[in-house]
Nucleic acid binder design. Structure first.
Lengths: 151, 151
DNA sequence: TGCAAATAGTTTCATTTGTAACTATAACTT
DNA sequence: AAGTTATAGTTACAAATGAAACTATTTGCA
């Protein structure tokens, strides 16, 4: 039976500490989503995020993908290498600027996207389903406020 | 100028997708806290979490630490190895069950705890400070609801 | 023009992390 | 008591991640 500490050290109560709670909730739901597709499609979280932005915006460069996914350029480069090798993303070189790539989902990439996206949405529904409609609205507006400007 | 995709593929809008928002907000604030102490004390996030629970509950075993930090036992074992080597945690063997360890912060561990805990609290205040008091209450009660039962 | 600085992206290497296997001790079953 | 199963914790190996150096191209400017 462990003892409760004296209060003069003012220890943190992890389970009521908001950054800790955010981390647990975030990891739990992200893991649940990842479990849906990781093994099934041999697709990592970073790769899925890249596919998700390319589904919305085609012709992006790798740097633009990095901006929109809050990933760094090395992570994007590695994810793209795998996606291109797997035939899920097409990579061409920009005609005016030969440093830049021009990225698109291939038909195979679209097929995977169209299967994974509904699963991700379903998990989001399950998460929000634990809340009352009023709470769902508060959570959304609070997260909008807390999101860093760049992201 | 990238084009906007046709809607028939129903691409995910990452920046409004709640699991994604949670991940960004959580990583941003966790990183800010970690930046406060990582280099300064040569202390990783996992190590800090272990110290935080030992500050509240002394004499825990490694497994109990793992439960209370939502970390797996390997991560706890590694964090403890570093903490013990650095003289921040004392590890003894349980008298009745020689498999179990009995863990406590050392005076050096307490000194670090007493410096880091206020910094962490300050970062939490800064995060919540972006919100109205009403929003802060909603966020707290929503996170309480979303926290998985074990954690 | 020609040279320095900036940008896009990749590669390399070290560190971190995750999974599985392993050791040691204790608990359960008969 | 003997043998099986479960538990606590560590170790070993592979995969993921991060930081820095590197290549190629473009931009800024003297």
């Amino acid at each position: 039976m462990p003892g409760i500490r004296k209060p003069d050290h003012a220890p943190l109560e992890l389970e009521r500490f908001v950054p800790y709670q955010l981390s647990i909730v975030s990891n739990t739901v992200s893991q649940a989503i990842a479990d849906d597709y990781q093994q099934r499609y041999d697709l990592g979280v970073t790769e899925w995020r890249v596919m998700a932005v390319l589904a919305r915006f085609d012709g992006l460069s790798a740097r633009e993908v990095a901006e929109r996914t809050a990933m760094d350029k090395v992570a994007v480069s590695r994810a793209l290498a795998r996606l291109v090798a797997a035939g899920r993303v097409r990579r061409e070189t920009h005609s005016d600027d030969k440093r830049r790539s021009v990225l698109d989902l291939t038909p195979a990439g679209w097929r995977i996207h169209d299967e994974v996206a509904p699963m991700a949405r379903q998990r989001e529904r399950e998460l929000l389903g634990q809340l009352e409609p009023e709470e769902q609205r508060w959570l959304r507006s609070i997260l909008d406020k807390l999101m860093p400007p760049e992201a």
